[in-house]
Simulated scan of single mutants.
Amino acid sequence: MTITEAPRVKDRRSLRSPVVYAASLLLGLAVWQALASVYGAALVASPVDTVRAFGELAADGTLGNSVVASSRRILVGWLAGLLVGVPMGLLMGRVRIVRALLEPYIEFFRFIPPISFVTLAVVWFGIGESSKVVLIFYTSVFIVVLNTIAGVLSINEDKLRAAASLGAGRVQTLRFVVLPAVVPHVVTAARLAMGNSFLTIVSAEIVASQVGLGALIWTSRNYGRIDWVFVGIVTLGVLGFLFDRVLRIVATRALRRYSVKV
């Protein structure tokens, strides 16, 4: 390949992704329209009907309020899960006695779905924001803890011994050996926790909220508005896609020195 050909190849590759995304989107819309034609509007709202319902809900502010409410709950609970889960995972990964003490509880609670605690969350924290945020935190923290522990335990013991032989203290070992190994696992945990947060917010809002995408979907179901239900579902997917993209971009740029690629 000559020097003049290299930029052309790079340009073709840069154009390839948007074309593939556009083709994928058109194919998805075609399948969606076909399903709507087969099953009818009573079961599957068509893309046109969904767009029309989207405009209807956006015009009266229902959709905007729902997006803001759900996004706020997800972000607060998710961030709380990260802030608690990462230090806990580092501590459990580095100190065996702490891991031995806490691991049974982690293994017990992580298999209990958040929806089973919805009623208790409402009783304990009320029907306000706290109950939803606590459920998001619950669904996020165990994922972060387990992935952080996995990152710590994956560190080669030779690196730890080499750092100790060079006179590195605990803080220096944590900074220069442990964190570079753990950061990629934490980023992966953050993405997984974000996905689980979207799964949890719907069930939480259905039971204990008047505003939010979950509440919108449930209310639409009660009124028999399948097109509104599809608006809520599509909005959740788009919102999750955007959140994940932003997280990937921020993580890649902010943690470049740790060679994070997501």
Rank of each mutant, 00 (worst) to 15 (best):
240 G>F: 08
221 R>K: 15
207 V>P: 08
223 Y>D: 11
234 V>Y: 02
204 A>L: 05
244 D>K: 03
214 G>F: 02
230 F>H: 01
203 S>Q: 06
245 R>D: 04
230 F>A: 13
243 F>G: 00
212 G>W: 00
239 L>S: 15
224 G>M: 00
237 G>Q: 07
209 S>Q: 03
206 I>Y: 09
205 E>Q: 09
206 I>T: 12
202 V>N: 02
232 G>D: 11
206 I>R: 03
229 V>C: 03
223 Y>G: 09
228 W>T: 01
243 F>C: 13
242 L>P: 06
234 V>S: 03
205 E>P: 13
241 F>Y: 15
243 F>P: 01
246 V>F: 06
229 V>A: 08
212 G>D: 11
226 I>G: 11
212 G>Q: 04
222 N>F: 07
226 I>L: 13
210 Q>N: 14
229 V>Y: 01
225 R>T: 11
237 G>P: 07
234 V>P: 09
213 L>W: 04
244 D>N: 15
217 I>R: 01
221 R>Q: 15
233 I>A: 13
235 T>R: 10
217 I>M: 13
243 F>D: 01
210 Q>P: 07
207 V>W: 08
240 G>T: 06
246 V>S: 10
241 F>K: 12
206 I>S: 09
222 N>H: 09
215 A>L: 08
207 V>R: 04
226 I>Y: 03
228 W>C: 03
227 D>C: 05
240 G>H: 09
238 V>P: 00
229 V>S: 04
202 V>W: 02
246 V>W: 06
207 V>K: 12
230 F>I: 00
221 R>S: 15
223 Y>S: 10
232 G>R: 04
223 Y>M: 14
224 G>H: 08
205 E>V: 06
207 V>C: 00
207 V>H: 01
241 F>R: 13
217 I>Q: 07
228 W>R: 12
227 D>T: 01
230 F>G: 04
239 L>M: 15
203 S>D: 00
217 I>G: 11
218 W>L: 14
205 E>N: 08
234 V>G: 03
248 R>C: 13
224 G>I: 01
220 S>L: 11
240 G>C: 08
226 I>S: 14
225 R>M: 12
219 T>Y: 02
206 I>E: 13
236 L>T: 00
245 R>H: 09
223 Y>V: 10
238 V>M: 10
236 L>A: 05
236 L>S: 05
245 R>A: 07
229 V>E: 04
209 S>H: 03
219 T>S: 15
215 A>Y: 06
244 D>E: 14
208 A>S: 15
223 Y>C: 09
206 I>K: 07
226 I>E: 12
243 F>H: 02
219 T>I: 09
231 V>K: 03
227 D>W: 04
226 I>F: 02
239 L>A: 13
202 V>T: 10
218 W>Q: 14
224 G>F: 02
213 L>I: 10
210 Q>T: 10
203 S>F: 15
205 E>G: 10
240 G>N: 10
247 L>P: 08
227 D>K: 02
203 S>N: 09
219 T>E: 08
215 A>N: 10
243 F>K: 01
217 I>S: 02
236 L>D: 05
220 S>G: 15
227 D>A: 12
220 S>F: 06
210 Q>K: 13
204 A>G: 12
221 R>G: 14
217 I>W: 00
234 V>Q: 06
247 L>D: 04
247 L>N: 01
221 R>V: 11
211 V>T: 13
236 L>V: 11
220 S>P: 10
219 T>K: 13
236 L>G: 02
243 F>Y: 05
237 G>C: 07
208 A>R: 05
237 G>W: 10
